[in-house]
Design a protein around this nucleic acid. Structure first.
Lengths: 248, 248
DNA sequence: CGCAATTTTGACGTAGTTCAACACGTGTGG
DNA sequence: CCACACGTGTTGAACTACGTCAAAATTGCG
């Protein structure tokens, strides 16, 4: 069951959320179908719900849910989790503004994981049944869907390859930070101060490390003046060194 | 550059290759477009080349090559590899009959890894440019392509999820053997004798272990009467135990 | 402020790596 | 035909990175 809160909560002392522009969103190929020659708004409104608010901890879908919608993050961060046979949580990914959630369920029509907001967030929602209905009649939309799928396949592949080749805890962490930096940056502009919405436990869980190990790695990187950390903010000081570590 | 040998080499003392049936192949949705209402042969012949022979070590494409074709394995086994900045090989997957190769390059149009035959093999070849040209005019083919992509996305996702939950060497090996067994088996029939075309070094490389560690794990599994190994043949004796180990 | 959750630090155990030696099969050349 | 190299796989012994356990320090929140 989808479980999004529409309540407009007061922004806490978090910085204001920055919303990603549609032009930088992975969903754009099916949200901005200008090529269709139809009124874009009129068409997309049939299956697209824009900027739905979600509060901390709210769940877009649960592992095992039938596929109803796919989502694009507008602001905030989501974690994707698997649940062990004995209800241990395993984080298999994070999603940042401009990235898709739930699209990997298009084939078996069932979500293989859960998606949970880490803090307040907003998402755009695409109803799959309605989208599919439209692809039947609008050929260009189908083409856009192919494009979306191939791009997404590529993203998954990239992540897989970056993961499978890492060995030491240090290189995992380095690769993680660089990956986050890249995904939070806009095109051509490299971000060096990272807001991490997730806890250290979340990161350790995702990377398959113990929280203690992660803590020690961060401490080491800080001591070597490669990064600077102050609670949820991590600053990349020596990007080159970090790259070197990531590819070791 | 594609690099397939058409020479009909004498079968060595390997067992005869078993070719996968098209009905069990991941490519079927675009190879058997019976729904198109056209002469299937006439249509698919435009982009499909069936059962091309490839010899041991031959390369379908290199990491960095521009995408020309995607392939389905008919017989034999392929390894997919990344090359390190200093030419160490990292194996990121194996492909068995009925499975696709190169499809993940559909988006950036460049292969992110190499595909190399482990022994003699045959593949079916789909020319992407021609396929794409046809999808423009044959809507059902486009739909089939969407289906292929979503299924493939799903497969990647599954593999990623199995990988990211980092585990002991023993459970990695157990999961690997079960995975191989499942992929080499046909529907509903569980295979217990596995022909491993890849060397122990290949497996160790893929799993991120040292060859010595892998050897010790195999020895332990054999001592505990869970598997039986005679060079390239591995027999799963106690499937249940193997499952238990895989999920630990 | 005060309590709970998160993060860090230290001491110690262990799984897997590293290094080195050996065993086996296969191909090559004298 | 044997000698030798070479690729592949196995085994033992020492080493090390990460996990485990326990406790302290810091942060966040009512």
């Amino acid at each position: 069951m989808t479980n999004i809160s529409h309540k407009n909560r007061q922004q806490s002392d978090d910085k204001c959320h920055s919303y990603v522009a549609c032009e930088n969103c992975a969903m754009q190929s099916i949200c901005l179908p200008i090529k269709t020659g139809q009124q874009p708004l009129k068409l997309t409104n049939q299956y697209l719900t824009k900027r739905v608010n979600a509060e901390q901890g709210s769940v877009l879908f649960h592992q095992g849910d039938a596929l109803e919608n796919i989502y694009a993050v507008c602001s905030g961060t989501y974690k994707l989790t698997l649940e062990n046979r004995f209800s241990e949580e395993k984080i298999i990914g994070f999603r940042f503004p401009g990235e898709l959630i739930g699209d990997d369920a298009l084939y078996p029509k069932v979500h293989s994981h859960s998606a949970i907001a880490l803090g307040e967030a907003t998402v755009c929602k695409v109803n799959v049944a309605q989208l599919m209905a439209y692809t039947q009649t609008v050929p260009d939309l189908q083409l856009s869907l192919v494009e979306l799928l191939t791009r997404q396949n590529y993203v998954s592949q990239q992540q897989f390859e970056s993961f499978i080749s890492k060995k030491s805890a240090e290189s995992l962490v380095a690769a993680f930070l660089l990956n986050i930096a890249k995904r939070q940056s806009s095109k051509e502009e490299v971000l060096s101060v990272l807001k991490l919405a997730m806890s250290r436990d979340n990161i350790a869980n995702f990377l398959g490390l113990r929280r203690e190990t992660l803590s020690r790695v961060f401490a080491k990187l800080q001591k070597e003046l490669i990064i600077e950390q102050t609670k949820k903010l991590v600053t990349v000081i020596d990007r080159e060194q970090l790259c070197r570590l990531a590819f070791t």
